[in-house]
Amino acid sequence: MDKVVRSADEAVADIGEGASLAVGGFGLSGVPETLIRALFQQGAGRLSVVSNNCGVDGGGLGVLLAAGRIARVTGSYVGENKEFARQYLFGELEVELVPQGTLAERLRAGGCGIPAFFTPAGVGTLVADGGLPWRYAADGGMAVASPPKEVRAFDGRDHVLERGITTDFALVRAARGDRHGNLVFTKAARNFNPLAAMAGRVTVAEVEELVEPGALDPDSVHLPGVFVRRVVVLTAEQAADKPIEKRMVRTS
């Protein structure tokens, strides 16, 4: 039952070439930075990543992206990651853009064993009708376009069929965890982390604080250990490394 491994390097050692990953975080909040950097050092490439966004230039998944190690991204937001935008527009990266709520539900559905579900989000748009550019060609045209999806009416309202998402691995970050893999997240850092963890067949969690089994109030656990395979305990320095995407200060 003890799921603690000795290091982040050990935790990601078996992530192979072409693996699919669900990665927690929103912007730079709750991003498993230590695991991502360990994966960067490990060297796996041609990765398919499912995450709300792909980090920023030089941070989060942006580290893997800049090294050309990501082949496909399923996400909701390009943001201010200039390298992400450049690779997508120049046909170097395949990108499936998904409405944010739909992405969250696709991850949850995959983790719950639900193969697909209907949602009204995206009906009447290219999300349902197909034709979104997944990959651009060198001349700026579309090399790969999204396919049309099934649309069905329920109670007089159209809904589009969306598939659940499961991945080979998941990388997440939690504030507290125990040796059984039970996790607690803090405030905004909770974001996509529980959902990404549910979707991974092998989920690796980096935790800022490790406690012994029984120390966590069961009512406070956000993700039960059944979804977690490995736990990496962060050093004090790693736990304190929480970059801010946009630092705002008051002018008066």
Score class of each variant (00 low, 15 high):
Ala44Arg: 08
Asp139Ser: 04
Leu97Tyr: 01
Met142Tyr: 11
Leu97Asn: 06
Leu35Gly: 03
Gly130Ala: 04
Ala67Met: 13
Pro147Ile: 14
Gly131Cys: 06
Gly24Asp: 05
Ala19Ser: 15
Trp134Met: 01
Glu83Phe: 09
Tyr77Thr: 05
Gly27Pro: 07
Gln42Asp: 00
Gly79His: 01
Leu93Gly: 01
Val63Arg: 15
Arg86Tyr: 15
Pro147His: 09
Trp134Tyr: 04
Phe118Asp: 15
Leu39Phe: 02
Arg135Ala: 07
Glu96Arg: 05
Val127Ala: 04
Ala22Val: 08
Asp139Gly: 05
Gly43Arg: 13
Gly59Ile: 08
Ile70Lys: 04
Gly101Pro: 10
Arg72Met: 09
Gly58Cys: 14
Phe117Cys: 01
Ala121Val: 12
Ala138Glu: 12
Val23Tyr: 14
Gly101Ala: 12
Asp57Ser: 12
Gly62His: 09
Ile114Met: 07
Pro147Asn: 11
Asp139Trp: 09
Gly140Cys: 07
Gly79Ser: 01
Gly25Lys: 12
Ala71Val: 03
Ala38Lys: 10
Asn81Val: 03
Leu28Asp: 09
Leu89Met: 06
Asp129Pro: 02
Glu83Trp: 11
Ala109Asp: 07
Phe40Lys: 14
Gly75Leu: 13
Asn81Ile: 02
Ser29Asp: 10
Thr102Val: 15
Val49Met: 10
Gly75Ala: 13
Pro99Tyr: 05
Ala85Leu: 15
Ala44Gly: 06
Gly45Phe: 06
Phe90Asn: 11
Gly55Ser: 00
Leu21Trp: 10
Glu17Cys: 00
Leu132Arg: 13
Gly25Ile: 06
Ser20Tyr: 01
Gly25Ser: 05
Pro133Asn: 06
Thr125Ile: 11
Ala104Leu: 14
Ala145Asn: 09
Ser146Arg: 04
Gly60His: 09
Val123Thr: 14
Pro147Glu: 15
Gly62Pro: 06
Leu39Ile: 05
Asn52Arg: 13
Gln42Pro: 05
Glu17Phe: 00
Asn52Cys: 11
Ala145Lys: 02
Gly75Lys: 00
Val78Ala: 11
Ala85Cys: 14
Pro133Tyr: 03
Phe117Asp: 06
Phe40Met: 14
Ala66Lys: 03
Ala145Gly: 06
Val73Met: 02
Asp57Phe: 09
Ser51Leu: 03
Leu89Gly: 02
Phe90Glu: 12
Tyr77Lys: 03
Ala22Thr: 08
Gly24Arg: 14
Ala128Arg: 02
Gly131Lys: 08
Ile70Glu: 01
Asp57Pro: 14
Gly91Arg: 10
Met142Asn: 08
Gly141Phe: 10
Pro115Arg: 04
Gly68Thr: 01
Leu61Cys: 12
Gly141Ser: 15
Thr34Arg: 04
Pro115Asn: 05
Gly43Ala: 14
Phe90Tyr: 00
Asn52Tyr: 14
Gly122Lys: 04
Leu28Gln: 13
Ser48Val: 01
Val98Lys: 09
Gly122Ala: 05
Phe26Pro: 13
Gly75Cys: 12
Glu96Tyr: 04
Ala38Trp: 12
Cys112Met: 13
Ala104Gln: 11
Pro99Ile: 11
Gly68Val: 02
Asn52Asp: 09
Leu93His: 03
Gln100Asn: 14
Leu65Tyr: 01
Ala71Glu: 07
Pro32Lys: 04
Pro115Lys: 00
Gly141Arg: 13
Glu83Lys: 08
Gln87Trp: 01
